[in-house]
Simulated scan of single mutants.
Amino acid sequence: MAKRRIAFYFMTIPALVLFFLFHTFPALQGIFYSFTNWNGYSDAFDFVGFKNFANIFKDENVIHSYGFTFKYALLMTILTNVISLLIAVGLNAKIKFKNFFRGVYFLPNILSVLIVGFIFNYLFANVFPVWGEKLGSELFSQNILGNQTWAWTGIVIVAVWQGIAFNTILYLAGLQTIPQDLYEASSLDGAGKLREFWSITFPLLASFFTINMVLAMKNGLMVFDQIVALTGGGPGRATQSIAYLIYTGGFQGGEFAYQSANAVIYFILIVAISVLQLKFLQKREMDL
């Protein structure tokens, strides 16, 4: 027993030390610097208290980034879960080559976000405009990523296309837990497919729906890689997310302390939104 306990400590302590050094300690440093005016590269800095936090709420650039991020995250979360749920239900039906299609739908999840973004960047710039011209569409005959009004839709399309893969797999796993006897009984009672979905499938997938909604919203709020690969926050600042603003302002704009304060506020918001989602959706699970 003693040897087993020693072996346990040898396996866990190095992991805990590494986690603290490369995750917890930098996070604590960021919180510390958020109360200073440090620019990220000089040796001198002064404590400014809550000044950085107060200025965040007066910064139009920050407010615009929050607005874009929340709009993107909300739409991406809804579309990803609706489409992935429909795909999962379809794949769970008795169709040929079911396993093949499951593999195809999961493929986007194993690809790098940056690689996917660069591929779609090429498609938006060179392929889709050609199709738009042939269809006679003025909007789609141009690169929408260069359109200040519609650039955000291109980012949503890419994020939804890639996000569907993981959510579909989770919904498929949930569908395997539903007893087929329930569907047979409902069929004998004359229930249609739509009635079966709302009365059996969706209520029994409630816990999986909760997980997917929380994870999708969290990923949407932390959007960064898609912005880097597709628009770089442009055109202008139309698609500048909070994560991208924190990165560019903190590491390239000499606003390290200011953006550290922004990061602290955003961390609190993400945690609060996730907790509210869990409470609301778990309450819904019990009501179903």
Rank of each mutant, 00 (worst) to 15 (best):
K94Y: 12
S260E: 10
T69A: 04
Y41A: 10
A93S: 13
S34G: 12
G236E: 11
L175M: 02
N121F: 01
V160T: 06
F118Q: 15
L281N: 08
R284P: 02
Y105M: 05
Y122N: 06
T69C: 05
F47Y: 15
K51N: 12
R195S: 12
A216M: 09
H23N: 14
L194K: 13
V223T: 15
K3S: 14
I242R: 04
A173I: 10
T69N: 03
N147H: 00
G90N: 06
R5C: 10
K218Q: 14
W38M: 09
I246H: 02
G220E: 01
F101P: 00
A238H: 08
S84L: 03
L281Y: 11
T201R: 05
M217R: 06
S137I: 00
L114F: 08
K134D: 02
Y105E: 03
G253Q: 04
F20P: 12
F97V: 09
V127M: 07
L139H: 10
T69Q: 06
L204R: 10
V62T: 12
L276M: 15
W161T: 07
R5F: 14
A185W: 11
L107A: 05
L230A: 03
F166H: 05
S84F: 02
Q148V: 12
Q176R: 00
I270W: 04
A216E: 07
A216K: 00
G49L: 14
T177M: 09
F256V: 07
K98W: 01
I115A: 08
T69P: 10
T231C: 03
N39S: 12
L16I: 09
F47W: 15
F106V: 05
G40E: 09
L16Y: 02
N167C: 04
F53I: 10
I265R: 08
I155G: 00
A88C: 07
G232C: 11
A263D: 03
Y122E: 07
S241W: 02
Y9L: 15
F10T: 13
Y9H: 13
L278A: 12
Q148I: 13
F256T: 04
M217N: 02
I164Q: 01
F22N: 11
V104G: 01
I78G: 01
G49C: 12
N262H: 11
A88V: 01
T248F: 02
L91S: 01
V158Q: 02
L85P: 05
M222G: 10
A185Q: 14
L28I: 13
L170A: 02
G67S: 15
M222Q: 15
